[in-house]
Every structure is written in structure tokens, then in C-alpha cells.
Amino acid sequence: MMNILAFDTCFDACSVAVHSAETGGITTERELMRRGHAEVLLPMIERTMKAAGVAFDRLDRIAVTHGPGTFTGARVGMSAALGASFAHALPVVTYSSLQCVARAAIEALGDEVTHFEGVLVARDAKRDSVFVEVTDMAGDELDAPALLSVADARQVARSRRLFALGSGAPLLAGDDGAQPGGLTTDWPAQSPLGIAEPDARFLLQDAASRTPAQALVPLYLRAPDATPSSRLPLARLVNLPAADA
């Protein structure tokens, strides 16, 4: 049995879950929010650890979602994980935020899981693209998280009999509005508030047995927006040796 601290700040929620080796119980706190994760996360960790009765120097490992997410959200969670890991030389296990959501969906589906071959979590990533991940019905990764065009994501959605959720799911219906066989996209709207947002408690399902991450860097899946300077250089008679040579 391990003492494990888990948290997520990738999208529109901030959540912390602590597993106590002593009691075997899980203590959680979660708040839906679009902004303010950086201010809320550490006090939330402090409260949850206290409520769980677990001290930092008794932790065995950290579990954290590393992305995809908002760039800042993914970095806030990873920076906190890096700090705690650095403070007590703790191993860190990382999860995709989309896998975390898939697990929540599987729990909520209950007996209905038998109707599907997998869960597709789709997050609207704007610019005609979606973050997509497919898991099996145990919540384990089938297709690694990826940033796909809406067209490619539609192909994925039709590849299996999938249960789909997330803000990108409505984009996956056909142009005529037809749903691919078995694909359910309207479910999140009828589901308990916030099921399409990650919840750190689902990381605790297998955090104890997962292999710790080697590189603790966020999973952005998208390059930074930056274009090299396009202004033409001045006409020169003689070239100075380049300053950066």
C-alpha cells in the first residue's frame, strides 16, 4: 500500500486526491474552474493532505496529468509535481488528462459499458482540430492522445464502437448530423456536471503500479505560436561576420 498524492489542472477543473496507505481510503477535493488553478492548487493540496492525514515526508509517489490541456494548466500541475518530487525525491507517474476523463465516464456508465468497445474523449482544440484519445473499457490507453484535424478525428470515431464525450465530441458527428454507429455525443450534456473534466481521483486506480515517468515535461501536442522574423535584412555591401556565428 502506498501514500499517493494525485492532482490535475489541465482543463476546466482543479482536483486533488490522496490515497492513504494507513486507512486505504481516498480523500478528494475538486472545483470546476476555467481560470485560477495556480492560486487554488497548492492550498487544495495542503487541505487534502491534512484531511487525509498524510504527511509529505510519508508520500511514496506523485500522480499527475501532464496534458493535453491549456498550456498554462498543464504547466501548473507539472510545476507542482516537479516541486514536490524535488522536495522529497519522489517518483512521479504521469497520465493523459483525456484518459483521466475516460475513466470517469466508464465509472458513470456502470453496466452500460458492455455496449461499447472503447471510450473516445475529444476536446475541442479550436482551429478545426481536437485533442483525441481512445481507451478500452477498463480505461487503459488504446490510441495515444493526439491533436487531430476534425476530419481525422471523425475517422477515429468510426473505427470502433465508441462512447464519446468531451467538448470536441459534438464535432465528430457527420456533416448531415448523423452519428456513426454506436457513437454517443450528446451524453455529457445530460450527465452530472463536470464529468467531461478530469478528476484526479481516477489517477489513483493504478498509480501504485504504474512505471514512473523519466522526463517530467508537459504533453502539449501543439507547437508554440511563433514565427521567425520575416523582415528582410538591409542591403549590405560587406557582410560582417554574423554575431551568432
Binding site: T72, V76, S79, A80, G83, F86, A87
Partner: peptide
């Protein structure tokens, strides 16, 4: 720059909390 500030500040907060 807010993105960078958040990295260092959150990292530091986490260390401070973990070591009281």
C-alpha cells in the same frame, strides 16, 4: 512573462508546502 512566472512560483510553492 506570466507563463514563466507560474512555473517558478508554483515550483517554489510546492517545495515550501512539502517542507513546511
Amino acid at each position: 512573462l506570466i507563463g514563466g512566472l507560474l512555473v517558478g512560483l508554483t515550483f517554489a510553492k510546492s517545495i515550501a508546502l512539502a517542507h513546511d
